[in-house]
């Protein structure tokens, strides 16, 4: 029961977190899942079934683009996602929104 609500709460910030990771470098899906887990100390254990729909939506909305890498030798071909200018703008907006939310939520919870 608790996990469902926890997942629900976490889902709201995933787009912002993914965009944040992509703002540093272009990255592939598996890499995003690993980094999110490490940098959140295990709080965000994102699964492929959650991540890929997010990436598809963001691509549809023009926030990211993608390319499949040319595998060199024994390397695996990877689908790299790269943030766009639009994506960076949305990232900034979302971060500001999040901070303002945190304040509003705090006001309600603390009363």
């Amino acid at each position: 029961m608790k996990q469902k609500y926890e997942q629900q709460m976490k889902k709201g910030v995933l787009e912002m977190l993914v965009l944040r990771l992509l703002s540093e470098n272009e990255k592939y899906g598996y890499q995003l899942i690993c980094e999110l887990k490490e940098r959140s100390d295990g709080t965000f254990m994102l699964k492929e079934g959650t991540l890929y729909p997010i990436l598809y939506r963001m691509e549809e909305d023009g926030l990211v683009t993608n390319r499949w890498s040319e595998p060199k030798g024994r390397e695996v071909s990877k689908k790299y996602y790269r943030i766009t200018g639009e994506g960076r703008a949305v990232l900034t907006e979302l971060w500001e929104l999040w901070q303002s939310f945190a304040g509003s939520v705090g006001s309600i919870m603390k009363k």
């Binding site: 699964k47 492929e48 079934g49 598809y56 939506r57």
Partner: peptide, 25 residues
Amino acid sequence: EMGEPEALAREFNENFGSGEAPQGK
């Protein structure tokens, strides 16, 4: 770790369907 194939597919379908998927548009 990836999970049961059905579970992964189910999660994908749920998330893809929500928020008016690009196909819906």
